[in-house]
């Protein structure tokens, strides 16, 4: 069995590598090179698209401007639905960047044949395939909602930990930990699981059969970006409005 697996492993597109990284040294610190390479690609794509869309703005949009306006309008509606008409505007850049970055990362991982580029160790994949990226995103979301709460309500924000009943304090504190945990693990698990499933199927039948699963992967990738952005909006809204009306989701 081992031999058989090794033979299939030698196929160029079908290698399964989990948890291997291209390490870069930065002073005393180690960083994951492959994550940064793909994230720079995604960021570059976003910046180029933004510059191209706003270089020559017209009242009647065409081409890339139209596309980016559609994206912006989508993001605005998303933020408006979650945070509310009155306060959503300052949060559009944050939620929108989360959405666009995650969406492009996921799709770049699912659509681009990164594996054709050989690295000394590890492989190029979606940046969201790495736990560091998703935890970074989730921690930023936590910081964002803390910032939103403290800026809006000052120290009175702390009062929400005693709502609706004071004995809920430990649960409320625990929630601040479970929120980023569930956010990051949801994204990480979905993307990694998707790549693993596709990888396994490609390993078994490297022809046509994996295509439906790949399409499903594209769908989940998009949905996960939407879910992350939506939840970030929900958490920010909760911090702005108090504890009462937010949904409890983990």
């Amino acid at each position: 069995m081992l031999d058989g697996l090794n033979i299939t492993n030698s196929l160029p597109l079908a290698a399964l590598e989990v948890g291997r990284h291209l390490y870069w040294r930065l002073g005393n610190f180690q960083i994951h090179g492959q994550v940064f390479l793909t994230s720079w690609f995604v960021i570059g794509l976003l910046v180029i698209a933004a510059v191209a869309a706003t270089r020559n703005v017209q009242r009647i949009p065409r081409g890339i401007q139209n596309l980016m306006e559609y994206a912006l309008e989508y993001i605005r509606n998303l933020a408006k639905d979650q945070i509310g008409e009155k306060e959503y505007r300052p949060w559009v850049p944050f939620i929108g960047t989360l959405f666009l970055f995650i969406f492009l990362s996921n799709w770049s991982g699912a659509l681009l044949p990164w594996k054709l580029i050989h690295l000394p160790s590890g492989e190029l994949a979606a940046p969201t395939n790495d736990i560091n990226t998703t935890v970074a995103l989730a921690l930023l979301t936590s910081l964002a909602y803390f910032y939103a709460g403290f800026r809006k309500r000052g120290l009175g924000y702390m009062a929400k930990y005693l709502e609706p009943e004071p004995f809920m304090l430990p649960i409320n504190i625990l929630e601040d930990f479970t929120k980023p945990l569930s956010l990051s693990f949801r994204l990480f698990g979905n993307i990694l699981a998707d790549e693993l499933v596709v990888g396994v199927l490609v390993l078994l039948v490297p022809f046509i059969v994996p295509i439906p699963v790949m399409l499903l992967g594209l769908f989940t990738s998009a949905i996960q970006a939407l879910v992350f952005a939506t939840l970030a909006g929900v958490y920010i809204h909760e911090a702005l409005e108090g504890h009462g009306e937010g949904e409890e989701e983990h």
Binding site: S182, F185, R186, G189, N190, T220, I223, L226, V227, E249
Partner: peptide, 10 residues
């Protein structure tokens, strides 16, 4: 569905 799915993902 995505939320439920994430339970499996856990």
């Amino acid at each position: 569905l995505a939320f439920m799915e994430s339970l499996t993902i856990y």
